[in-house]
Structure formats: structure tokens, C-alpha cells
Design a protein around this nucleic acid. Sequence first.
DNA 1: CGGACGCCCGACCAATTGCTTAAATCCCCT
DNA 2: AGGGGATTTAAGCAATTGGTCGGGCGTCCG
Lengths: 202, 202
Amino acid sequence: MLKPLTRIQKRNTKAILEAGLDVFSQHGFRGATLDQIADVAGLSKPNLLYYFPSKDAVYLALLDQMLETWLDPLRHMNPLGDPVEEILAYVRRKVELARDYPRESRLFANEILQGAPKMMAAIEGPLKTLVDEKCMVLRRWMAEGRIAQLPPIHLIFSIWALTQHYADFDTQVRAVLGPHHDPFAEAGDYLDLLFRRLLTPR
Amino acid sequence: MLKPLTRIQKRNTKAILEAGLDVFSQHGFRGATLDQIADVAGLSKPNLLYYFPSKDAVYLALLDQMLETWLDPLRHMNPLGDPVEEILAYVRRKVELARDYPRESRLFANEILQGAPKMMAAIEGPLKTLVDEKCMVLRRWMAEGRIAQLPPIHLIFSIWALTQHYADFDTQVRAVLGPHHDPFAEAGDYLDLLFRRLLTPR
DNA sequence: CGGACGCCCGACCAATTGCTTAAATCCCCT
DNA sequence: AGGGGATTTAAGCAATTGGTCGGGCGTCCG
């Protein structure tokens, strides 16, 4: 059915998605323009539209691809592992994502800020399902007294908020920290400490 | 020098700022249009431009006004009060701000996401100065053993991240929580618990 | 090496962008 | 009541927006 992609197709779709990530993550959907994306990708606008049928299509492809990277680390939280260490590993992985994929984080932030007009389905569907599932695990750990009693969903929210903050508000973080700082290294240490204190049962 | 504002001037500038807050906070600077702002404000576009000389002017007025609301609660953290209670009061106030002024929070988030092109000066200036000042207070409290030893700036970052998350990611929070939840009430309780655990010395 | 299809671009489209102009109307004070 | 400034708008500006179209060019495979 689907023909294999040619060499040029692979190169150009990749360049377009890369450029789209740059521009959409910085300006949001409405603030981004096809001209700018085409320019960053090193293509003419009609050529860009030869590979993607519309601005929407580029954006949706990016959201789709991003959601995978996004949900993956949470999936890897192992119900059979040591609770505190499992959660801390998740936090650590999220800090790494914030450091290595800040554009993806900002793309997501932009979409949610605008009320998730193109992502509501994914949030209410797969994302919510996964979160609900992991909340069950957290609740069990709490019932067994292996981590502190906390509202599980809000625990997850706080992991998201604290890790993504360093990607989404990078500009502010660096401006306030001043030079001679490594935000992500410091964030890793600080959040390890924070969640260890929060989760370790008394 | 400056003439007092007429009744109509007051009404219209207020309507414009209100509408601008709506639109800018949802779409960011580039994604917002004067047509849309004028429409929300119930004015014609040329009439809007009679009160503000440009799109930039509306946006800058909003940023300016927002930064005040923003910095105010941190200013009120009293060096002479009880450390844990002072910090918790700040957290509580920030949760209230997120609940009552979510658009201001999102406006700020949008601006920072885009690299703070129109706010860098304010961040590197007044904001950084205030943060540095409060970090001194935190460091003293830590040295006196009245709160736990933590990197003070990152402590402040975590307060910002956790409280603003409930305003900026409101859509996601509500979608994941499902119905029959009061995000801000739950956030207030949870964050009180979190920071109490984090800050209370062993 | 030749045809066919994948690839690319200049020119163009209607709609929308931020903003201006000039003339009309409103409102308030004397 | 009426004059003068405050307020409002219709009309229109050049530039930019997302997207189309037709034809020319490249490249790959037989």
C-alpha cells in the first residue's frame, strides 16, 4: 500500500519537522508562519506544501511525535521496582528530557496554554489512561507504607511542573541564575533531594 | 501636565486591556490580532488604535501591569516572620493568584516561552534584584537552622513552577483530574503539605 | 539514453495583517 | 444653544498570510 519513502522525501520531511519544531515551539501555532518554517528548513514555501498538505498537517505531525517521547518515561515506571527509586528515576529522566528536548516541551506548553485545541482528545484519552494507571500503582505503594501518603495525581503534576519548568522557562531561569550555572545539573540534584524528602515515609 | 482621563477614556482603555489580556494570554504576541482584540473589547479597530498607538503598546501595558501583581507577594515575604510560615504564606498567595488571575499567568508564560523578547530587561533588572534579595533572607534562615538547607533560588523556582502550573496547564489539569474536582483547592492543600515537608528541619 | 514520475519554483490568489486618513458625530462646558 | 475638543467610523493602505497552479527540472530504472 504505502510506497517506501525516497531518499529526498526522508531528508525534506525531516528538515520540515525540524524547522517546524523550531518555529512552532517558539511562537505557538497561530504565531508561526509557513514562510518562516520553509525558510528555516531551507525550502521554498510551495515545496514545503508539496510534502505536507497544510500548516495544520505539520503541526499535528509534530504533536503526535512529541506525545510519544512525552509519555514514554512514565510508562517505564516499574510497579515491581523500589517505589522511591522508581519515582526518582522518572524525575531524573524528565529532567534529561527537559535538557535534551526543550523545544518539544515548549511545543506542548504552547498547545496547552492555548487550551489544547488540537490535542484535547490525546489528553483525555491515552494520557489520562496512562496517568490513571500509574496512580493505581502509586496508591498501592502508599497503602503499603512504602512512600508517603499524598494525592497521587498531584504528585505527578508536581513532577511535570518542576521538570518542565526548566525547559519552558529556560530564559527566565538563566537570567535569574546569572552566569556560571548549569540549570539542568542543579535541577537534577535539587529535584532528587526534594522528591526524596517528600516521598520517604517517616 | 497629564490631563485627567475622561470617563470614556477610562472605560475604553480598561475594555481594551481586558480584551488584550484575553487574546494575548491565549495566543501569545504574534498569534494575537488587533481585529480580535477590538472585537472582544466591543470597539472598532481604528477606535482601539485611537487609545493605544500600536499592538505593541497594548502588549507592553499589559506586561507592565502584570509584573506588579506578579512580584508583589514575594515582596511581602517578611524576613522577621516565622520562616516556614512566611514561605507557606507566599505559596498560598501564589496559588490564589493562579486561581484568580490565570490569564496574567499565561500571558507571562507565553512571553517567557518566546524567549522574553520584550521583558528581558525587567527580568534581569527588578525581578532578579528582588529574587537575589529574598535569597539572602532564605540563606540566613537556613544558616540559623530554621528551615532545611536547600539551594534558595531553586526553592523559589519550585514555588513558581508548582503554583503557575495550575494556571498555565489548567486545561490539562482539569482533563486529567476529571470532573468533581477543585484543582486550586486541592493544589493549595497539596503544596502546603509538600513545602512543609521540604522545609521543616529534621 | 529516453521516458516517466518525483521534485521544485515563480507567479499568483483571496483573505487577513497592523495601521492611517479624513470626515463624521458625540459630549461637555459655557 | 453652540462651539470645540473628544470620540468614532468607513474606507483604504501596503505587507503578509495560508494555499494553488502550471510548467520546468532531476533522477532513476529499464
